Simulated assay, not measured.
Amino acid sequence: MVRTVGSWSLLAVVTVAVTVGLTLLGVPSAALFAALAVGIVLALCSLAPARVPRRAGQVAQAVLGIYIGTMVHQDSLASLGPHWPIVLAVVVGTLAISILAGALMGLRRDISPLTGALALVAGGASGLVAIARDLGGDDRVVAVVQYLRVGLVTATMPLVVLFIFRPDRSHPSAALGQTATAPWYLSIGLIAVIAVAGVTLGKLVHLPGGGLLGPMAVTVLLEVTGHDFGLSVPQALVQIGYVLIGWQAGVAFTRESLHAIGRALPLAVGLIAALTAATAGLGMLLSHVTGMTPLEGYLATSPGGVYAVLATAVETGSNVTFIVTAQVLRILVMLFAAPLVARGLVALTGRFARRRQSREITDDSKEPIAVAD
């Protein structure tokens, strides 16, 4: 008992300290990065708790699902105007490229096709990490590769914008306005109701990853119909959700799994670079069809780094509303479609997957988080 309390206390204290440091450095989703990194280090030193309680993982999924759902607004699709078909086509193209890259990664003997597909889907990193184990994938691999994608895209974006697009920064755009929000106590009540309703919906329709996608679907419905009652997820709750998801993947690491993931990182970096280049090409197509600038096309189709995209769009005087709406649409499509497509991919390669899947990574994490139980 004392050992358990001590391990949880150590995990919490170190995670908070690292989160503060990463936040000061401007790292996006710092709490999740910190929780993942600290969980890995303590697990490898045999100082971490055995696992995150299943119910805690369920609550974290629901909170993140609702938080992502609040990114959608009633006038979001209207901001795309007549260009919504090409934007949707580009998003679907991004999904197809992501799944192809994931299938290539799944050719490795130590990574299953499902894990590879989820690891390289270009959108909703925290959501995909949250539901990876529920879908039968390895959430440790998904976490490392997904946040490697976010980190690389975010880090290279300023260089791409500066040296390729050379924007005029003398006329910045206005940032997106904030709508009135409900008091925190009312939002907490709404979150609880939406979480229960969303998880129940996920059970009824057998939605993959329903613990996250069910509450997200209910939230999106409320947002687009204008019946959200000013719902706003408190940032403290979001950060707790990030921490739980990061711990869930981090504390499950072993030395063997870390070595296996390390061997896959060169391939992952190459596939992320190829994915970024391919989506930039889709951005140029979007720019040509819609008449937007090449920079706006690039920002609208960037496969990650939403906060960096928003900051760059404002600073360069780009069409912020269009770009952010396209990015949110990308995230939603990836989160809803990726589990279905990934499972389809596994069905097609099923006769090979069991033979090729390495015990080195998957055995410790194949027990699902039974969100729909």
Rank of each mutant, 00 (worst) to 15 (best):
A56G: 10
P49C: 14
V59Q: 05
Q61H: 08
T70D: 05
A34N: 11
V2A: 12
A12H: 04
F33D: 07
V59D: 00
T15L: 10
G39L: 06
I66H: 07
P28E: 02
M71W: 08
A31R: 09
L32P: 00
G65P: 09
A50E: 15
A56N: 01
A17R: 00
A43L: 12
G21M: 11
A12D: 03
L24Y: 14
A43D: 11
H73K: 15
V72T: 15
L11V: 11
A62E: 01
V14D: 03
A34P: 06
V5S: 11
G57F: 00
V16N: 05
W8N: 14
M71V: 00
G69F: 10
V18T: 12
W8K: 11
G57V: 08
A37M: 15
V13I: 14
T23W: 09
I40W: 10
A31H: 07
A17P: 02
Q61S: 12
A48W: 03
V14C: 05
L47F: 02
V52T: 12
R3Q: 12
A17V: 03
S46A: 03
L36W: 11
A48Y: 04
L64H: 01
A50K: 15
V20N: 02
S29E: 09
G21S: 09
A12S: 14
V13F: 07
S7R: 15
L22T: 09
F33V: 15
R55Y: 13
D75W: 07
L44P: 02
L32M: 04
V72E: 13
R54H: 14
T70K: 05
G57N: 11
L32V: 07
A50M: 11
R51L: 09
I66R: 07
L44G: 04
L32F: 02
P28H: 04
V14E: 06
Q58L: 14
A17Q: 01
G39P: 10
G26A: 08
T70A: 03
A30H: 08
Q74D: 13
V16A: 14
Q61T: 09
L32T: 03
A35R: 09
L22Q: 10
P53K: 04
L44K: 06
I66Y: 12
V52E: 11
P28C: 08
L47D: 01
M71K: 15
P53F: 01
